[in-house]
Nucleic acid binder design. Structure first.
Lengths: 222, 222, 222, 222
DNA sequence: GATGAATGAGATTTCATTCAT
DNA sequence: GATGAATGAAATCTCATTCAT
């Protein structure tokens, strides 16, 4: 995707060296991602990645010491995308807010594309496992923190078990891709969002939040 | 596990041939499971499985055409355990009912042990993917069916999105192992159960169900 | 060379397993030696060794973890042959004594066959370098010790520099193979022996030792 | 060694092109020698040599068709140094004469530096083997010729085996480096020289030669 | 000429699977 | 049936050499 000018006509005869190398590195990264995602990490060979990127086998090793390092680069390039923005539950209609957050986060995850391979990798690479565990714990903390604030402001069910709900939200978010496989229709983030809101807010609070949001952002998302 | 009585003389022809073979097959299945779970499917070699089961490499191939087939046997042997009993939401305290269902299902899954390897396998084996998808869809249907009944009986929130909630329940159930990794404490099925119930039942219905249950099963779970 | 019965007829249908494996290991060792000697260590591939031994590539790795280990086995099997017997200079005709020692030692070295490759290996494997250096030092010590005794008994030139001569002898011995390449004729150990004796003994002592030897072993080597 | 004056402006076209090229060629030769000697021929890559010489990989191939050719150039550049000057045994004190010849020859060999790698190379390159063999035979001939003259002049032991002694001298000369590894002390060419003289000259002749030398070159080497 | 990225043949090593005993 | 040594295809990785810039 970064090489959208490959085929353009009338451009400079050549890109500066640095850039060409970068381009090749990116092609390899992208090919790696593609193949990891469609065939799995183990099933993908360095040779294949190179071929898919249109370079020779040896070139792969110019840019990456091995397959694992390419994977790590993929993760490092993208891991920050895993962190969703701190949601603010108090202002606005939490349902639509959450829905858009969900959708955005999900989009990020899809772009990352690696969800499908990570479980495989985690088993063989404890370092990676820890790395991912950390990221996950961070997201969990954010969710938990948001819930705490909401609770302290009296917005939630008053017997809300913060940790259990935070965990549930995390899991639902992490799995919101792929519920289309079950029901056949596209993932409806609006509906998931409703489900989550019902876990957190009593109906009256929810209604009230909806109304106040309507005033601030009339017809938004209408 | 390596049977050193092979060479003893004068003992009973202890096990009928058939049974000894069955025993060996089981040892292989178990070894396969152990090693798949702890090292991953790709990382486990047929030789290792055989060694772990105390038989020769070649013997592996007498009982299974290859590694994949052993895996499929594992799944077939255990896949029925994936189907939780049809839950009846209408009778009894749904929270504790659900909690025990959850716990039981989770125990089954742990025994199966393969959750950790399945994602890896699904990528390389579309047949397996379909197989597992089917099982998943079956569970989903059961949940959906139970919710439908509850809704028809006016027990649920009346704007309940059946499919979204069924999906959410499925996801929470599937992931209920491993929430201990986040919060540090053991998975609390009671709490997960509460979260789910809140998605489904309005508080008053829930209270009512709780009371009626108390009458039928006084002091249960007290 | 240990498999001299390969082609014998009328033997048992098969050798016991252990022995067959040993045979294969030996075939690999021998092939390794052959190829190392004729092509050099670096120029020889594991695949070639296997092919030369008549086995598959993988079989090589059943018996040796890699090429280097095969080499080390070769050395360990044969390194004791490097140590010549302690020569006794005082009794007998030193010239013929030395000649036969030389010839024997040379034969051992040829059997070892590795002289030609060792220099190459020593460069890349300091461990091996030390190993061989030790062996060499041991031989040097033996020679030196023999010379010392001879000197103490007043048999040698009285201004003999023991260390220089010991070194010279060692070098001549080590290189006594391959002087045929220069002169065209076969290595004449008798002549080398004479050269060495002249370095050590004055002519009169030498004559005397020759005579006394003649008495003890009349017509020997005549 | 990396010339950072490449980009300086306004300086002399400092070196004529030809000379700059020569300089680069020399840098490559030197780097090749260094690396061959310290790491071995096979273990040294063209890339390394280029990097060590401060030029690009491709430049290597402008000056040498391949690694082998660089080696051959090294040898050709230096091979004439292998030929020691024709020694004249008859005039002067042969011991000190020989000692200085030895030392000089040894210094040449050390400068050449390649003794350590040659055995490796000889195995894979019969052409090289022949080349070196020729040089060696030339030296041998010179030694032999000198001995012949000495013998004809009645200076040597009269039963001297010319060829055996010539060979011995050659071997001792070739190996005179590295006897320090055994005894610990520096190579003592004077002592080696004595050893050789004892092989060639009877003590009385030697004494006489010494005396006559003292007259011609009083206090030399004092 | 010089550069160094790119190439791809070939070496090392692993492992699913076969097969002689 | 059971055994485990043997097989060889395939993966990983290196490096001499070329070639576009």
């Amino acid at each position: 995707m970064p090489d959208h000018d490959d085929l353009m006509i009338g451009e400079f005869p050549s890109l500066p060296k640095q850039e060409r190398a970068q381009q090749k590195r990116n092609a390899l990264l992208e090919s790696g991602l593609d193949l990891f995602v469609s065939n799995g990490y183990e099933q993908t060979t360095a040779k294949e990645i190179a071929a898919h990127a249109g370079v020779a086998t040896g070139t792969f090793y110019r840019y990456f010491s091995d397959k694992r390092q390419l994977l790590m680069s993929l993760l490092e390039d993208k891991i920050d995308k895993l962190l969703p923005p701190e949601p603010s539950w108090m202002s606005g209609n939490p349902e639509s807010l959450l829905a858009s957050l969900l959708e955005a986060h999900n989009k990020r995850l899809s772009e990352l594309g690696l969800q499908r391979v990570l479980p495989e990798l985690v088993l063989k690479d404890p370092g990676l496992a820890e790395f991912l565990g950390d990221a996950r714990r961070k997201i969990y903390s954010r969710i938990l923190f948001g819930l705490k604030q909401a609770k302290e402001n009296g917005l939630t069910w008053n017997d809300l078990d913060l940790e259990a709900v935070a965990w549930a939200i995390l899991v639902l978010v992490e799995n919101s891709h792929g519920n289309d496989k079950l029901s056949g229709k596209r993932t409806d983030f609006q509906e998931i969002s409703k489900v989550i809101c019902r876990m957190v807010f009593p109906p009256d609070v929810l209604e009230q939040l909806r109304v106040s949001d309507e005033k601030n952002n009339p017809k938004f998302n209408g």
